[in-house]
Amino acid sequence: MRKGLIFGFAALAAVSTGALFNTNSAKAAGEAIALPQLEWSFEGMFGTYDRASLQRGLQVYREVCSGCHSLDYIAFRNLADLGYSEDEIKAMAAEVSVVDGPNDEGEMFEREGRPSDYFPAPFPNPQAAAFANGGAIPPDLSLMAKARADGPNYLHALMIGYVDPPADFELAEGSNYNAYFPGHQIAMAAPLFEDAVEYADGTPATVDQMATDLAHFFMWTAEPKLEERKGMGIKVLIFLLVFCGVLYAAKRKVWADVH
């Protein structure tokens, strides 16, 4: 009977978690159509980022997205995670110019970017961003993969979601139809088209390929410690499993004379 009750509590907990999960998926389903589910290398207990995909995603961001979208939480030094060498990072940082100062004479000055600098934002302030984009502010993309339900799949779907609207769909002035955007009307025009970039590693730059690489890259910008986390998790779980075994044995031994 006691076991039955413990089981009851466990079942209650399971039902509650299940309800929670259903809530999330129901919410996602209520706002948009089901997203195409991709297989990501960073999923699962042993998940890691695909360095080649990350580098391709960075390339698409720099050549396409960065014209309008900032990436505030990423510094050039962070690109070491993507497999770039120190010299490559220095060279990439040097391509941008940064306003620094004031110097000893009290003046602000421009200098070459350094690895410790953060990615420059395309607009100096939100007002400028809104003015240049017909009133819509392009959001910062650093955390986008965590700020949307089913983030990586959503970002991929959004990039490939620019299709012709259904015949009876009334599109508001200045917006674009997107199959996966909540409400289907998005201010951003289709950013990707076939061969929008020429991949350094020779991968054919299809829209789907670029969308996948971008979503992969944005998962990294949102969760740069994912590999460290999952790697440590395995060790912690193995330790705790063994530890629980030892504690259970101790419990059995101590309680032997009571039962």
Partner: peptide
């Protein structure tokens, strides 16, 4: 209680890490 704590930490760690 120590054994229960171990099991609890196991579940907590599974969520925190995964």
């Amino acid at each position: 209680d120590a054994f229960g704590l171990g099991v609890f930490l196991l579940v907590l760690a599974a969520v925190v890490f995964y």
